[in-house]
């Protein structure tokens, strides 16, 4: 474990908690893409099945359980508890255009053709594009609540920190996982446009307005 991976995990945890609290406190999921949250729940489910097969560390297990629990709690709040505030008209990204190609790619490009490994690979590829419905929804509505932009900032930051972690691990441990790195680069690039707006317009404005 290195400082970049630890701050990356904490940034990821912060994003997940910020979103969950935002929906819970405001009792509204306006501006939140339920589709992206379903994809994240799918990412964690397919990636953390190894909870049942291998024990890495207490930290690893605890974080996985928290991620999965928060992901499903968020999906529940969006589609059940605060369903009335879900903005389905703007959450229209065709997620099948993400899941199907990613599923196919996971079968073609992976480290090992075993069920757990293919599911892990699927989750890595899916995570890199899972935020697209959310970014698409914001571009359609043309705005995002400030708290939502903080959620996206920490979510984007986490994988950027992981990229530094992989550089660190390659240099000091000779470890590198090409699949995770390539997907992580794609994932972080998708946030660049948002990062630019977050930094340049985040200050002083109540709403982040993305030119549609």
């Amino acid at each position: 474990m290195n400082i970049f991976r630890l701050t990356g995990d904490l940034s990821h945890l912060a994003a997940i908690i910020i979103l969950l609290l935002k929906i819970w406190k405001t009792r509204s999921c306006a501006g939140i893409s339920g589709k992206s949250q379903i994809l994240f729940a799918l990412v964690f489910t397919s990636r953390y099945l190894d909870l049942l097969t291998s024990f890495i560390s207490l930290y690893n297990t605890t974080m996985k359980v928290i991620y999965i629990g928060c992901a499903y709690a968020t999906v529940y709040l969006i589609y059940a508890k605060f369903k009335a505030t879900y903005d389905g008209n703007h959450d229209t990204f065709r997620v099948e255009f993400l899941v199907v190609p990613v599923g196919g790619l996971a079968f073609l490009v992976n480290h090992d053709f075993s069920p757990l490994e293919i599911l892990w690979t699927f989750s890595i590829y899916l995570e890199s594009v899972a935020i697209l419905p959310q970014l698409f929804m914001i571009s359609k509505t043309g705005e995002a609540e400030t708290i939502t932009t903080h959620y996206l900032f920490f979510l984007g930051l986490y994988r950027a920190l992981y990229l530094i972690n992989w550089i660190w691990r390659f240099y000091f441990e000779g470890f590198f996982d090409m699949i995770a790195i390539v997907a992580g680069v794609v994932q972080t690039i998708l946030y660049c446009d948002f990062f630019y707006l977050y930094v340049t317009k985040g200050e002083g404005r109540s709403q982040l307005s993305i030119p549609t």
Binding site: H12, D50, N60, M63, K64, W120, N165
Partner: peptide
């Protein structure tokens, strides 16, 4: 092979 498919990262 084994070590590559034990993923220690979240």
């Amino acid at each position: 092979k084994a070590d590559e498919t034990t993923h220690d990262e979240l």
